[in-house]
Design a protein around this nucleic acid. Structure first.
Lengths: 126, 126
DNA sequence: ACAACGTACAACCATCTGGTTGTATGTTGG
DNA sequence: CCAACATACAACCAGATGGTTGTACGTTGT
């Protein structure tokens, strides 16, 4: 399970690590576009853009539907939210660190109190 | 300005696209670690881990401070939040699309009403 | 003093990546 | 019917990536 999560994350972040792909993703989140209409927006071959779209599709960041000879691409906002959730988990680790630092400071304060008044019964609040 | 933003985004997402680097980032967000202590956690050479740390540092996702012979690494939660903010902007594009679709539906409804009962006063139910 | 440790970086190598052109196949419009 | 269009994919290439080993240098502990 965790192994597959990491595979997905690899695909997500790799797909997002190219600026052309990020731009394509912006467009297909804002509205449906055919691959060829996307290709017309960039100074590179159709095949290059088609490969970028395929990378985004394999990563699950967009879906394609066929209409006649055109492939219409739509961004998948749920996948984008999932990537965001991963980052929120990273933030949570950092917040946990802060909590532990607070505990450490509390312990230190307690130890200082004990050193300063070693005979008094410890009392945490005034 | 925008050009440099894209450069930063390239570095962020590329740094996050490797699972070892994501794991390192989790550790250094949760607490300070020396490069060698990080290296002991992975089944690869010290040099490989040191390069991963360097990639994260160049991307601005962690900072290093020198203490004696050790380099102590700390995750930068602000950078992580900035990455999250980029994804939120992507979501905003999608929400804009939905708004536009709502407007479109409203227009269509209006046009249908006009076509169906061109002379009657419009009444939506009944 | 000096051996062990921690870090940094260069050189090297296999593989991946992002681009190209070319080709095949299905779809559409005149 | 057939030319033009849209897509997909293979083959190829230069450069980036992720790993390795080796070397150099500062720091620490005995």
């Amino acid at each position: 399970m965790t192994e597959n999560d990491e595979d997905r994350a690899d695909a997500w972040f790799h797909a997002l690590s190219d600026r052309t792909r990020r731009d394509i993703l912006r467009r297909v989140l804002a509205g449906e576009h055919s691959v060829s209409s996307l290709a017309r927006s960039y100074d590179m071959s159709f095949a290059a853009v088609q490969k970028h779209v395929a990378v985004l599709e394999r990563a699950g960041l967009l879906t394609k539907r066929r209409q006649g000879r055109e492939a219409l691409a739509n961004g998948d906002v749920e996948a984008v939210r999932s990537v965001g959730a991963m980052l929120t988990e990273l933030e949570a680790l950092w917040r946990g660190r802060i909590s532990r630092m607070d505990e450490l400071f509390a312990e230190q304060r307690q130890q200082q109190d004990q050193q300063q008044t070693p005979h008094d019964p410890p009392h945490t609040n005034g």
